[in-house]
Design a protein around this nucleic acid. Structure first.
Lengths: 208, 208
DNA sequence: ACCTGAACACCGTTCAAGT
DNA sequence: ACCTGAACACCGTTCAAGT
């Protein structure tokens, strides 16, 4: 009963920025990226359709904020899973890939904004996809450690990280866009499939 | 000089359907999927903005036709490359993957429509992604032949085809959307990278 | 049968005006 | 400083009307 005062007035005092991001995510989850509009966001946030322009340059800037938040969440989540693991570095490598796919499956709205086709995503800076760099670096660092311990084969770690990323990104995209031939597979079967696909292909990176 | 008669009148006699598809592709290539509009297509085709509705149910139906054409082209192109190859079945397997990525790189406009997020792509039928089935089957058949000859390890060919598909789809998407850390890589370097990534990961499917 | 033009309900973005 | 409301140039889709 004490914190019901900040209802319809609260984000008139500074937190509209956050509310707009959260509302955008809600709408994307419910109606898809395609049907997201600035005017819908504004209406649901209880504000005029021009108000968001005080907080974001344009519609893409809101999507950019959503993407940034997504990359943050994905990184933290992956780091946490690795920290909790009792396995060796090779296990960490596998966990990073599976965790990546899990994030995409659990937060498809975020993921779609993060990796919407670049042609449509001018909300990434004109330079190279800077948002995805930290998670890519994490992957590459794990690979380098594995190489030092002889758990993965030698070779350019950047290239191997890219290979690993291709698999998980590809699988995640096919999965959340329902392009998989998942004829009547239930959730458990899909998770097994996902595990099997990643581990099989990762084995191509093991020492010969 | 003989066939200049069919200029602005010709598609009033039945081929507007084709002109609309081709025009859509032109605009996507020039301005991106996001900036494609029915009204732009109609205007460039020299027809009123309501005319396309005689030929397609709605805007998505046009994109569906583009996607279908893309899957056709991809399949034929891959089959042709395999037919020209002098290698064994394992080579065919590698060719199918590299050919897949090449198609995406050479026809990014097609590819983006083919694999735009499903939430946005109601132009795929409500059933399972039927357009992509033939190319998926080709991949699976090659895998089965390789298994019979002991060139690939045993296991569910459907699952292995999915694994192979994940890689090439993931790499293709990252590549055409410029999410790759391709700092100053030229075309030749990118093709080497692509080849290396695919072959490395495919080696995870080889007999143990 | 095929196309047009007006109409409707939406967009993103800008800008003067209000508090 | 932050928000509103009207305005502008666009959308996709429908439908009566023209040929």
């Amino acid at each position: 009963m004490t914190d019901t005062k900040n209802q319809s007035q609260s984000y008139h005092h500074g937190n509209l920025t956050r509310v707009l991001i959260d509302t955008a995510l809600e709408i994307i989850s419910e109606q898809g990226t395609k049907d997201l509009s600035l005017r819908k966001i504004a209406k649901r946030a209880g504000v005029s359709h021009a108000a968001p322009y005080r907080h974001f340059k344009d519609k893409n800037a809101i999507l950019g904020a959503v993407a940034r938040q997504g990359f943050d969440m994905m990184l933290r989540q992956t780091e946490k899973r690795i920290a909790k693991s009792k396995g060796n570095e090779l296990d960490h490598f596998a966990i990073s890939g599976l965790s990546y796919i899990n994030f995409a499956v659990n937060y498809p709205a975020h993921y779609r904004v993060m990796f919407g086709t670049r042609a449509e995503n001018s909300y990434f800076s004109d330079e190279l996809k800077p948002e995805s760099i930290p998670v890519f670096k994490l992957l590459r660092d794990i690979i380098m450690v594995c190489q030092e311990k002889g758990l993965l084969k030698t070779g350019d770690p950047q290239e191997m990280a890219l290979a690993a990323w291709s698999i998980v990104h590809g699988f995640a995209m096919l999965r959340i866009d329902h392009h998989l031939p998942d004829q009547g597979m239930d959730e458990k079967k899909l998770r097994e499939l996902q595990r099997s696909v990643v581990l099989t292909l990762y084995s191509g990176l093991r020492p010969e």
